[in-house]
């Protein structure tokens, strides 16, 4: 989140910061720092997954009923959009290592585009749920099968998990824009493209979270 951006800014281009002895040490420290940060992200989402496990064990039928009101087509489309963005991100990192400015800008631009596409589709889904009174809180209405309280818990977790994920996408988009500007200015060379590398790690992590959210939220007992 905010600290990920701070992390990206913590690295001056090519210049070796005073606390390091070599560029290699600086690179290793940055990458390790990003990974440790991602571990905190795993635990951060982990609390929500824990609540999901408990309540899905308690209320399997209500969770299935709630899940059936989510749009599988949109969910699957969004999954594929994010996977595509991960591909272009990986290619942007590779272009960074090659020092190829045109490819960096191209692939970062595509990544950003896919990110916005994801957020657009997500916003449309939220709008639909809002129309259907499925946003938890005072206006929540459920007259389908299952226990209305349990279905509300399902939707609470749906919004908490996808909302937190979307927030990470927004932060990720901010990082992409920063990287795009840096790439366009030719800041990334064969010797130094650390921000691309660690920005990429962040982006892929957010993708992985969605890879788990998609089956757990959209695909519960769809055969019924």
């Amino acid at each position: 989140m905010a600290d990920a951006q701070a992390h990206a800014q913590d690295l001056e281009p090519t210049a070796l910061q005073h606390q390091f002895d070599s560029l290699e040490q600086q690179f290793d420290a940055s990458v390790l720092g990003m990974w440790v940060f991602l571990v905190t992200e795993i635990m951060f989402f982990g609390g929500l997954f824990m609540a999901y496990i408990v309540y899905r064990t308690w209320y399997p039928d209500s969770f299935a009923a709630g899940s059936h009101h989510l749009d599988v087509t949109l969910g699957m489309t969004n999954t594929m959009v994010l996977i595509a963005s991960s591909l272009t991100m990986a290619l942007a990192v590779w272009a960074g290592q090659q020092g190829n400015r045109f490819r960096q800008v191209l692939f970062l631009g595509l990544t950003l585009l896919f990110g916005f596409a994801f957020l657009g589709i997500k916003a449309y889904e939220y709008w639909e749920k809002f129309q259907d009174h499925l946003v938890p809180g005072p206006n929540f209405v459920w007259d389908g099968p299952g226990n209305p309280h349990a279905v509300q818990i399902f939707y609470s977790l749906y919004f908490a998990m996808t909302g937190l994920h979307a927030l990470h996408m927004v932060v990720g988009a901010g990082i992409m824009i920063t990287l795009l500007v840096m790439a366009a200015r030719g800041r990334f060379t064969r010797q130094w493209s650390t921000p691309l590398e660690i920005g990429g790690l962040y982006w892929h992590f957010v993708d992985i979270v969605w890879i788990f959210l998609f089956p757990l939220l959209y695909l519960i007992e769809r055969h019924v």
Partner: peptide, 18 residues
């Protein structure tokens, strides 16, 4: 099955893309 596929997909991203 759903979890196994998700773990496989996540592992691919971690192993190759990351």
């Amino acid at each position: 099955i759903a979890l196994a596929i998700a773990v496989f997909k996540g592992s691919l991203v971690v192993w190759f893309f990351m």
